[in-house]
Design a protein around this nucleic acid. Structure first.
Ligand SMILES: NC(=O)c1ccc[n+]([C@@H]2O[C@H](COP(=O)([O-])OP(=O)(O)OC[C@H]3O[C@@H](n4cnc5c(N)ncnc54)[C@H](O)[C@@H]3O)[C@@H](O)[C@H]2O)c1
Ligand SMILES: NC(=O)c1ccc[n+]([C@@H]2O[C@H](COP(=O)([O-])OP(=O)(O)OC[C@H]3O[C@@H](n4cnc5c(N)ncnc54)[C@H](O)[C@@H]3O)[C@@H](O)[C@H]2O)c1
Lengths: 213, 213
DNA sequence: ATTCATTTGTGAAAATTATCACGACTATTT
DNA sequence: AAATAGTCGTGATAATTTTCACAAATGAAT
């Protein structure tokens, strides 16, 4: 929308900062330094200061950052004032786990609808979220821009096409399939098998005392 | 262990390449170009060639790569000849989903033991994996070097300490807690809430036609 | 008032990662 | 045998990200 000059690496860390600031605020702390923050979120303090600096001078030299101010700032930056609705496609093992998880308390993102091809699941309700049959996508997806994909890998491509047709703009893809989408659709992959395998690879091939990821 | 000159970014992509080569091989293909590979895994073809080149000249100019040869090469690079045992700590919503998932067929990584604090879960068996009480960690963790952490965030720090004492070297952490570990322990975080939140942030703040992540 | 210990914000440098672009080589077709 | 289309490996360059290191500002202590 606006300031696209914020590095992607920074943007990815924002939700992490936001969550931690929330914790601090709830603990009643009203002041925090980049050093403390660094120890808590395991990000170098210079990186944190640099990240914050993209948004202007948010702190005070010799003092640190005011928790409440910073929190308020991030709340609006991350659009936490308006709720984002998310659909979950594929109510299986993984999908069910997500539905049963209140997706972060300090967070205005909600899974509000589930979809599955299994007719026995349609009409049920998991963790307070109604499940619809996948054929009802068109009627029920109105106004939802983000989808979580937890269907079998073989279905990923065809479901993605449907989602795109229904106007979905962002997909969080948990299937191992690398889906194809038009230019303007954003896909983030979370590939659990790859993560596990690369962890094992790092263990075996990288010196034990190297810097952490 | 050996060639630590391989960039971390490359190392993270290896399992992805490996999986796709496996697919190709099972489809009976015996030749593949960096361009084809690129379309399938959505990584720039020059990046793929560069990645491969860290391991030497694996392909042939004007021809491409021999699938079987490349696959064999990656199999040994990723240590797929020996099975890696993994323990899962916290058999709740997320943990149960993982246990029910045969963690990739073409893959020698296996979750072989589960642990939970709930006495009702101890002694059971989920997806073929035996569940033990968390107090049995010491007796049952022998020889296991990697753990998946799916306990409540509040327990993350204390469980981590126990795991480290038992000689665990790598942890795949699904809790929102940023755990502290000694220098020589490797931790990879998968923070689902952060992933979802950052996807939403990107959608709202980055031009729709920008390059994909 | 002055000193002192802190801590930010940032210019500059370093490190890492991705991409361009082309010479060298291969297989295939004519 | 020559021409053609395809493809790798890589030097060079560009882009991105992280880190260093310090002047300037702050609040607390004496
Ligand atoms: N469970 C895990 O631990 C895990 C780990 C890594 C990756 N994954 C990936 O996540 C995805 C889901 O895994 P899972 O274990 O939950 O699988 P699952 O089989 O338990 O669930 C898949 C669900 O999708 C539904 N479905 C099938 N076709 C559909 C369609 N066309 N439209 C809508 N719904 C459809 C099924 O009815 C089922 O409920 C898979 O792609 C899997 O590879 C899972
Ligand atoms: N479920 C999700 O979709 C989701 C999404 C994002 C993050 N997470 C995170 O993953 C973790 C697990 O989530 P969940 O939904 O599976 O929670 P859950 O409450 O369903 O499961 C946690 C399990 O850990 C066990 N446990 C508690 N204390 C323990 C201890 N000291 N030792 C061993 N086991 C213990 C509990 O008995 C329970 O079975 C949490 O930290 C959560 O924040 C979950």
């Amino acid at each position: 929308m606006e300031q696209s000059k914020i590095p992607q690496a920074t943007a990815k860390r924002l939700p992490l900062y936001y969550r931690f600031l929330n914790n601090l605020n709830q603990q009643g702390k009203n002041r925090v330094s980049s050093k403390e923050l660094s120890e808590a979120v395991k990000v170098d303090s210079a990186t944190i200061r640099r990240d914050f600096s993209y948004f202007g001078a948010l702190g005070k030299k010799g003092y640190g950052y005011n928790v409440e101010y910073l929190l308020g700032f991030f709340r609006s930056t991350l659009d936490q004032h308006e709720t984002t609705e998310v659909a979950l496609i594929g109510v299986g093992n993984l999908g069910t786990a997500f539905l049963n998880y209140s997706f972060l308390k300090n967070n205005n993102i909600r899974i509000t609808k589930g979809f599955d091809a299994n007719p026995e699941k349609a009409g049920t309700n998991i963790g307070g979220v109604p499940i619809y049959h996948i054929d009802e996508l068109h009627e029920k997806l109105e106004g939802i821009r983000v989808a979580i994909l937890t269907v079998p890998a073989t279905e990923a491509e065809s479901i993605t096409e449907k989602l795109v047709n229904e106007g979905i703009e962002g997909i969080l893809n948990f299937t191992p399939a690398r889906i194809s989408v038009p230019e303007h659709i954003r896909v983030h992959h979370i590939d659990l098998a790859v993560e596990l395998q690369s962890l094992v690879y790092f263990l075996k091939h990288y010196p034990l005392d190297s810097k952490k990821k």
